[in-house]
Amino acid sequence: MQELTADDIRASFINADDRDLELLDVPVSAALADWFALDFLAWRDPSTRRCYVIVELDGEPTGIVLRSAGSSSRARNSICNVCRTMQPGNQVALLSARKGGEAGERGDSIGTYMCADVSCHQNVRLAHPLAPGEFRASVDLAIDQAAHRMREFVRRVRDGD
């Protein structure tokens, strides 16, 4: 990713209203980030149940605001749709984003099950124990696929699909 300032981060959000931007606290980790090693920037604000994701789409930083569903899954385990890692059920949440454009103005939104702390970019880099008969795909492939799925989710929000 290209290096972003706090102003760049605030300007990147395509589905944020004035209230969202008022509540937005740019994380300290953004100032310390190794931007060239980031697939996407994501963080959660636990006080507002909002999550923020910024990816590069068509060479431009594109951010979305996500809202977490009020309760966590009752399932024992769940799989994040972005990083595809198995997590305890309370660590995967339904996150929804108001769509961009006219669809968003009508109140349309799109959601997916994602790591509740949006740490997908870190989770794909962790070594997980293998189940019997399971093989480990390339870590680089897992990283690329998670980044692709996150970009496609942001693209769907942006385009109002």
Rank of each mutant, 00 (worst) to 15 (best):
T48N: 08
Q91H: 11
G89V: 11
Y52V: 04
L41G: 07
P27H: 00
R84C: 10
S78F: 04
G89N: 09
Q87D: 05
I79G: 05
R49C: 02
P46F: 00
A75R: 14
R98P: 00
V28P: 06
A69W: 05
V53T: 11
E22H: 13
F40W: 12
G70M: 10
R67Y: 04
E22D: 14
A93L: 10
A93D: 08
L21D: 04
S71Y: 08
L41D: 05
P61D: 07
V26P: 06
N77A: 10
D58K: 06
G101D: 09
F40S: 11
V82T: 13
D45L: 05
Q91I: 02
A93P: 03
D34E: 14
A69P: 01
T48I: 05
S96G: 12
I64V: 15
I64E: 01
R50T: 10
R49D: 14
S29Q: 09
G70C: 02
W43C: 02
D25T: 13
S73M: 09
R84H: 14
A97I: 00
E22N: 15
L32Y: 12
W43Y: 06
N90V: 12
T85M: 13
S78W: 02
I79M: 15
A31Q: 13
T85L: 01
P27T: 07
N81P: 00
S73Q: 06
T48M: 01
S73L: 12
T48S: 15
V53S: 08
R98Q: 12
D39V: 03
G63Y: 07
R74L: 14
V26I: 15
T62R: 09
L57P: 03
P46I: 07
L95P: 00
L94S: 12
R74Q: 10
D20P: 13
C83T: 03
D25I: 10
I64K: 03
P61C: 08
T62K: 05
A31R: 13
L24R: 05
S47G: 09
A75V: 07
L32K: 10
Y52S: 07
S68V: 02
V55S: 04
S68Y: 00
L21F: 09
S47T: 12
L94G: 09
A97Q: 10
A103T: 04
